[in-house]
């Protein structure tokens, strides 16, 4: 009897400990395990995509690498978890990933009801439509009666419903769980239209049998601010992710690149000195070394460098800066000062 009571008490205690253990600070967890676990897409060229050697590249991946550079001084200390649109929030909520950097749209309901926080916008996007050029469609307003392939569990699915309803047009939505299945279904002719964020359309077009036979319609039907997401209630980690992105934008504004960052260490410009950690203790304020931004810029680059390398005009995606240019050049990328 005593033995039974003891084992009951022990197992109950163990249960309690197991539950309590899941709530430590993310930054401490990350430092303890030695890498950042980053949730990415299952393969979206330009944003998060494994290359032929299995290395992940892309704009979203660079943000993960920048976080690792800030925490460890080594941008390679990242492990990636490919997630479908459906799985992504659960993976972050449950602690399976430390940060979700997976072309995820910042919306009010996601920000407020999922127990998550959006830590900035690293790409301003909008939803578009792709059709076969043989259909001779010039505008999205001609799409009444079309079948539309999209991803399930995305803002895209909701926007397309809103757009067709607002314009009083009929449509049929075919929603797949995996992006590759959506592309395959569109490629096979199951759908007339493929819709997702416009950057995604350019990226996925490269996977089609004949990319040249498809055109992206001019309409942009939604605002899609894409950015990294963290769990709510861990402000230290939230700040770190937020300022990692801001550091890259500030670096671009100051003209600091991975090429000249070593020379810039000697500069007398107080703004750059604060950014690179030669003046002040800004790194300590977010729980990492004072050379955090130096490591980010040295190993990953500033925002312009990652943009040009992954999605810019020289890449297969050929996306121009547009609204993603710096605020000083007419775009929306704006970072608060390091001060």
């Amino acid at each position: 009897m005593k033995k039974l009571m003891k084992s009951v008490a022990l197992s109950v205690t163990a249960l309690g400990l197991a539950v309590a253990g899941a709530q430590a600070a993310t930054l401490d967890d990350v430092k303890a395990k030695g890498f950042v676990q980053c949730g990415v897409s299952q393969g979206l060229p330009g944003f998060s995509n494994p290359d032929d050697k299995g290395n992940w590249t892309g704009l979203d991946v660079d943000l993960c690498r920048a976080i690792a550079a800030a925490v460890f001084g080594d941008a390679e200390k990242v492990k990636y978890t490919p997630l479908s649109a459906k799985e992504r929030f659960t993976a972050l909520q449950s602690g399976e990933v430390d940060v979700l950097s997976r072309n995820t749209t910042w919306t009010m309901s996601r920000d407020t009801s999922l127990g998550l926080n959006f830590a900035g916008v690293n790409y301003y996007d909008g939803q578009g439509f792709m059709v076969r050029s043989s259909l001779d469609v010039k505008s999205a307003l001609e799409l009444s009666g079309a079948s539309i392939c999209t991803n399930t569990g995305t803002t895209t699915e909701l926007n397309v419903a809103d757009y067709f309803r607002a314009n009083n047009m009929e449509y049929e939505v075919v929603a797949f769980e995996k992006a590759d299945e959506v592309v395959a279904a569109y490629d096979a002719g199951r759908c007339d239209v493929y819709t997702t964020d416009q950057s995604g359309l350019y990226a996925q077009r490269l996977k089609l049998t004949n990319p040249g036979e498809h055109i992206v319609l001019p309409e942009i039907i939604s605002k899609e601010p894409l950015g990294p997401v963290v769990r709510q209630g861990d402000d230290q980690w939230f700040n770190l992710v937020k300022w990692t992105h801001f550091a890259m934008v500030n670096a671009e504004e100051f003209g600091v690149t991975s090429g000249n960052v070593d020379e810039m260490m000697k500069t007398e410009n107080p703004g750059i000195k604060r950014l690179l950690g030669t003046e002040g203790t800004f790194g300590e304020m977010i729980g990492v070394g004072n050379d955090w931004a130096y490591n980010i810029i040295k190993q990953v680059g500033n925002y312009a460098e990652t943009f040009d390398r992954n999605v810019g005009p020289e890449t297969p995606l050929q996306i121009s800066r547009g609204v993603n240019d710096l605020w000083s050049k007419g775009g929306l990328q704006y970072a608060p000062p390091v001060r």
Binding site: R110, T152, G153, A175, F176, E177, E181, A185
Partner: peptide, 21 residues
């Protein structure tokens, strides 16, 4: 759920779950 037929798991335990969290 693998082929986009909108039955219970696909449309409710899938899409609705994702939209509401």
């Amino acid at each position: 759920v693998a082929i986009a037929y909108p039955e219970l798991v696909s449309v409710f335990a899938g899409t609705a779950l994702n939209q509401t969290g």
